[in-house]
Design a protein around this nucleic acid. Structure first.
Lengths: 223, 223
DNA sequence: AGGGTTCAGTGACTTTGTCACCAAACCGTC
DNA sequence: GACGGTTTGGTGACAAAGTCACTGAACCCT
């Protein structure tokens, strides 16, 4: 085995498992790697296994019948797709898809093993339910945001989150509009306004944050 | 025991349990009844038990920091609050609340019993995961709707769903606006338009459906 | 019958979404 | 380097939806 054999330790929620459970997870899982821009799951593409992300991120987005799209959430390293996978297995009129945003390395755990683990290990159960709970509360907040928050506030927030440590966000207006579930034109106009105020600078395919604190103030303006 | 002793049988997902599991559920649960308009759960009000609804409905709604509200979903008889309860236990910055829309009768199952059941019974696990999955996919669809569907379409759909068999919906414009997460004025104007077209008739505190098929056509207009 | 409350209607305005179209930047390849 | 297709972003006009401030009617109490 390689350096990924100890992957279980890298999951905060799984480190509390007892040794036999950890070994079961390690032995019965296989490390898989998928290239960037692969559809990991989606309509007509339900994976056989539960994935535990070791590296990279998977973007989960809803594709509407209207042709619109909106990013629902991202699965980062240290998290699991249990929920989306479980959803796929339960309902086939499922319209969300998961796309690898970079090369993604994951541990694939067969369904039966997953079920055994839920049955046999209390810490594993806690991990799984915590993941579900977090997802649901996040979706609640997202609904709140989509329904009631102004786009300038949401865009400022999204820019800061997408930027991470860096000051430059490499993305297009189109992609930003999918992040927020709005129209490209709306993003263009908002970014123009931000630029006019000197908060950002634009280039084709990128946005440079010039005044993070001003953007942050706007993003925090949620009361 | 009373007529509710066999409540387990009334849950489609639970009837497949084996006898000992059913008995465990029945013996370790207590039937509770809460009056109409009670807040069953919400910020600072996390119940100790998992509820299985026998009668009535619980309306779950998000209360925004902006003062706005939106109905997320309803828990009907034959369903369980596992998810919302689980969420409450996991995260306290939880801003949704569950309100009894009528007198609600439910079986309360202590957390430990719930955990034992998940561990010991495969059909019970399936029931719980199916509930989670259904909820999450429904929330996906809801986000899609809030973000991309026109209010007239959503309102027509909501009127039909709220009406059930009857033709009269007893509700106020204010309540309808919370159902859709929009403003009261918007509802008033849309209902005026529906009335102008002869699809409905309005009275203080009620809407009467006059042309269900026309409303249905509009509601189906989702492509 | 009076007074408070709930419910609904309205106009003016802002924000957001839609549509149709244009122009510049980029990416090949010839 | 020139050409042509694609991607990206800009624009104006308009429609839909949300906000604000205010009005009046219906209802519910004593």
């Amino acid at each position: 085995m390689n350096a990924d054999a100890d992957w279980v330790e890298r999951f905060p929620g799984l480190s509390r498992l007892d040794l036999p459970t950890k070994q079961l997870l390690t032995n019965r899982s296989t490390i898989v790697s998928v290239p960037k821009d692969t559809m990991v799951f989606g309509p007509g593409r339900s994976p056989e296994n539960m994935l535990f992300l070791l590296d990279g991120t998977v973007r989960v987005q809803q594709v509407s019948e209207t042709g619109h799209q909106i990013v629902l959430y991202r699965i980062e390293a240290g998290q699991s797709c249990v929920l989306t996978t479980a959803c796929l297995l339960a309902y086939d009129d499922y319209s969300a898809e998961g796309i690898a945003e970079s090369v993604v390395k994951a541990a694939a755990v067969p369904r039966e093993v997953f079920d055994d683990l839920v049955a046999g290990s209390k810490p594993f159960r806690d991990f799984v339910f915590a993941a579900f709970s977090k997802r649901i509360t996040d979706l609640f907040l997202m609904i709140d945001e989509v329904a009631f928050q102004r786009v300038d506030v949401r865009l400022a927030d999204k820019l800061i989150k997408l930027s991470g440590d860096a000051d430059k966000v490499s993305t297009t207006h189109q992609k930003l509009s999918v992040e927020l579930g709005t129209a490209r034109e709306v993003i263009s106009r908002q970014l123009q306004e931000f630029q006019r105020r000197g908060w950002i600078e634009q280039a084709r395919g990128s946005v440079t944050l010039k005044d993070r604190s001003k953007l942050q103030t706007l993003a925090d303006h949620n009361a």
